[in-house]
Simulated assay, not measured.
Amino acid sequence: MNDEQVPAPMPSQEARQWAMFCHFAAFLGLVFPFGNLLGPLIVWQIKKDFDPFVDTQGKEALNFQITVAIAVVACFLLMLVVIGFPLLALVSIGALVLTIIGGIKANEGQAYRYPFCLRLVK
Rank of each mutant, 00 (worst) to 15 (best):
E4M: 15
E4V: 13
Q5T: 07
V6Q: 12
P7K: 00
P9S: 10
S12F: 02
Q13W: 02
Q13V: 15
E14P: 13
A15T: 04
F21Y: 15
H23M: 08
A25S: 14
A26Q: 09
F27C: 10
F27V: 05
G29K: 12
L30G: 14
F34Y: 10
N36E: 02
L37D: 01
L37G: 02
L37Y: 00
I46H: 04
I46D: 01
I46Y: 05
D51K: 07
D51V: 09
F53I: 04
V54W: 06
G58Q: 06
G58T: 01
G58W: 06
A61S: 10
L62Y: 06
Q65N: 09
Q65E: 06
I70V: 14
A71H: 06
A71Y: 11
C75N: 13
L78F: 15
V81A: 09
V81H: 07
P86L: 07
L87K: 13
L88W: 04
L88T: 03
L90Y: 15
A95Y: 11
V97W: 04
L98K: 13
G102Q: 07
G102Y: 00
I104H: 02
I104M: 09
K105I: 03
G109Q: 06
Q110T: 14
Y112C: 08
P115G: 00
P115M: 02
C117E: 02
K122V: 00
